[in-house]
Design a protein around this nucleic acid. Structure first.
Length: 108
DNA sequence: TCCATGACACTAG
DNA sequence: CCTAGTGCCATGG
């Protein structure tokens, strides 16, 4: 078992938790996946995400709310379908940023 | 093993 | 708004 595999599952789990109509940044996901500062890893995983995946990858944007994705057009469409306004491949993090659930931070 | 690349983040200019 | 530099991790030549 590779540690990276565990981190991968953690990242996928976090992304799967992003509510519809909300967006999260790579860094935010990395932090929630218990791997703060490894936003690069999150982007790497999404880039290699299998086509059969049901993960809401479209809810992931960079720290500026900008859609940095090989298929930004499709992403923008998916977001708009969830009532998330995106202008020039950009979303308002002020409005749509996913608030970190306290339960995730709680020490169970 | 070294170097280059990538759906990132942060800081400085 | 832009670019450049640095840090992070994984993969491929």
């Amino acid at each position: 078992m590779s540690a990276s595999n565990e981190n991968k599952k953690a990242v996928w789990s976090v992304i799967a938790r992003i509510p519809s109509g909300r967006v999260a940044t790579y860094g935010q996901i990395a932090t929630l996946a218990d791997i703060p500062g490894q936003a690069r890893f999150v982007g790497y995983l999404l880039a290699r995400l299998p086509q059969g995946s049901t993960l809401p990858w479209h809810r992931v944007v960079n720290s500026s709310g900008k859609i940095t994705n090989p298929n930004a057009a499709a992403q923008a469409v998916r977001l708009q379908a969830e009532s998330v306004s995106c202008d020039a491949n950009r979303v308002s993090l002020k409005q749509y940023r996913w608030q970190i659930p306290a339960e995730s931070l709680s020490t169970t």
